[in-house]
């Protein structure tokens, strides 16, 4: 795939839009999933996912052929999701659907504020509970955990994607794992 991607990127750089369509086909699920895990809702994931590809297309000339394309693409996606999270911080969407719950929104969460984790697990599919715990992590831990365990990047690649030193990646992944362990130990 790497060779094909390289060839496609050459064509895109020459201005060929249909070659870019193939790139979108290949990466759309990965990027959409990444945005969804980072943002926790489908609407924003679609929005930011599309924005990722548009940015990639517009800035394709700044992509260095010697680097890995997926790393570059994930970097755009991650930066955009973090921007979006920062922007929305002050106002919390009470009517935003909680990921993985069918039609549950934040209003329903207000009433169930003080349930114990064990009870929560019982009321929800295990998968949904895990998803919720991942999206509950602070963004800087969330991004490394997602990249490491869901997208299966190496630590060095994560360091490239997030543009942070390898040591910082390790620290964040340790803390992320510990935070998740505390939340999932009783599952």
């Amino acid at each position: 795939m790497d060779l094909i991607t390289r060839e496609k990127i050459k064509q895109v750089k020459r201005g060929d839009q249909s070659a870019f369509e193939d790139i979108v086909s290949f990466y759309q699920n990965k990027i959409y999933q990444h945005c969804y895990r980072m943002l926790g809702n489908r609407h924003e994931a679609e929005d930011i996912g599309q924005e990722t590809f548009i940015r990639a297309y517009v800035n394709i000339h700044s992509f260095d052929d010697k680097r890995k394309f997926s790393t570059w693409l994930y970097r755009i996606a991650t930066n955009l999701t973090i921007d979006r999270i920062r922007k929305r911080k002050p106002d919390y969407y009470l009517d935003a659907e909680i990921r993985g719950t069918d039609g549950l929104d934040m209003y329903s969460q207000l009433a169930t504020d003080h349930r114990l984790p064990e009870e929560e697990v019982q009321g929800m599919e295990l998968q949904d509970y895990i998803n919720q715990q991942i999206s509950g992590l602070p963004p800087k831990y969330r991004s490394v955990i997602i990249l490491r365990y869901l997208e299966e990047f190496s630590l060095q690649e994560i360091s490239d994607i997030l543009d942070i030193p390898l040591g910082t990646v390790k620290t964040r992944i340790h803390r992320g794992r510990e935070a998740l362990r505390k939340k999932l130990r009783h599952v």
Binding site: Q33, Q127, I134
Partner: peptide, 10 residues
């Protein structure tokens, strides 16, 4: 547990 979460498609 994290690795076994379902894949999401666009």
């Amino acid at each position: 547990l994290v690795q076994n979460t379902e894949q999401i498609t666009a």
